Amino acid sequence: MKKLVNDPKRVVEESVAGFASAHADLVTASSDPLFIARAGGATRGKVGLVSGGGSGHEPLHAGFVGYGMLDAAVPGPVFTSPTPDPIVAATKAADGGAGVLHIVKNYTGDVLNFETAADLALAEGIEVRAVVTDDDVAVRDSLYTAGRRGVAGTVLVERIAGAAAERGDDLDAVAGIAERVNANVRSMGVALTPCVVPHAGEPSFELADDEIELGIGIHGEPGRTRTKLVSADEVVDLLLDPILADLPFGEGDRTLLFVNGMGGTPLVELYIFFRRAAEVLGERGIAVERSLVGNFVTSLEMQGASITVLKLDDELVELWDSPLHTAALRWGR
């Protein structure tokens, strides 16, 4: 294992400190309990948005704290849910008096700990709603979940719900927007290599040099099938077919196409993926109106990618395009 770390037990703590120092104009960090919040504190009268989960998926979630997206993020240990205490602290930091929305990826630990934190926050007078993301079409009831996993579609939920909160929607309306995005987004990923969790010091699973895992989870959970490596276009087709069949997507639909890298895949390969995915959608009469390409929901240094397709309408396009300023995404301001 070769990693640029000091003490494997302090990876998250030191990474958060570095992130906060690099982006001090956007965020502040609390070390005890550990969470990241917007610089300047909560916006009075605005619904607050909080998300979080195990570290190792950067820039998810801390990289999306800022104007037009999250108000706070809670990083747990690598691939491990944060405990309720920092989630409660982040919820308090995000509360501007209009309530707080928790956006939670569907992993058992995340769901349970965010539920407990919501109960504790409610006892202190903060109204909390929660939306659980479950956009992965690959498998149900994986090693970490009951039901489908929440993966890269979570970024789109956080962005569009954050835009709704920024324009002044109330808590029920912001939660409704988040639920609408989650209901209309589907994802599936592929791994070419495993990753190495720092404190484990060895690959999280084994994959032969000529094999790929279709439907992999962002923690390295098994997918639908393991097969021989094929061309990029063939891999895209293997991912897109189940995505488009699941909602389903069809001729005349307007979409946002998101090609996400798993941490170790260069942009040159991600754009090859995007090219083929856009081509397939076009052949089926599905319009790609918005796009996102890059490493946004990673799995440490895993080589691989995921494809996410969101069905759009006029309101979702307007919210997506509205001003945004975070460490990982910025446009319009």
Rank of each mutant, 00 (worst) to 15 (best):
E124L: 07
L270R: 00
I216C: 06
G223H: 05
P33H: 09
V16P: 07
A90V: 11
Y144A: 08
K2C: 14
V235Y: 07
A277Q: 06
A146H: 15
P82S: 00
G215T: 09
T133S: 06
E202S: 05
L256G: 04
A118Y: 11
T83K: 12
I286E: 04
A72C: 10
M302N: 11
R159Y: 00
P84H: 02
R330L: 07
R148M: 12
D136I: 06
T193K: 05
R290Y: 03
S231Q: 06
H102L: 13
G150T: 00
A175K: 01
A138C: 06
F249Y: 14
V104C: 10
D7M: 01
G99V: 07
S291Q: 14
E289P: 07
K2V: 11
S81P: 05
G223N: 02
L49T: 07
V174T: 05
V174C: 10
T133A: 06
R330W: 03
P194T: 03
L112E: 10
A138T: 01
E127A: 12
R186K: 14
V185L: 10
R226D: 03
A277F: 13
L207K: 04
T326L: 01
T227F: 06
K3Q: 15
V236G: 09
S231A: 12
T227D: 13
H57Y: 08
T145P: 11
R44N: 15
T225W: 03
A173D: 02
V16S: 00
D172E: 09
R10F: 06
V197Q: 05
A37S: 14
A121S: 15
V47Q: 07
Y271I: 09
S322W: 03
S31W: 10
G41E: 12
T91G: 14
T43W: 01
L26D: 04
T145N: 12
V280K: 00
T298L: 14
N6G: 13
A37P: 04
V293A: 08
A278N: 14
A245R: 14
M302V: 05
V196N: 07
D209N: 12
A17L: 10
R10T: 15
I87L: 12
N106Q: 15
P33W: 06
A138P: 00
K105Y: 01
D253E: 06
K46L: 00
D210P: 08
I216W: 02
D135P: 03
S322L: 02
S15L: 04
P59H: 08
H23Q: 12
G96T: 03
E318P: 02
V12W: 10
A29T: 13
S299M: 14
L238T: 12
E251Y: 12
V190L: 15
W320M: 04
A117L: 07
A73T: 03
S21M: 05
H102Q: 13
G304R: 08
R290D: 13
G304W: 08
L229K: 15
T133R: 00
V181Y: 03
R149N: 15
G76S: 05
T225P: 05
M262A: 11
E279R: 15
A152H: 03
M188R: 11
I36Y: 05
R180S: 12
A161S: 14
T298P: 00
P248S: 11
G18I: 11
K105P: 02
I177M: 13
A161N: 03
H219C: 05
E14V: 09
V196M: 12
D237K: 11
A208K: 08
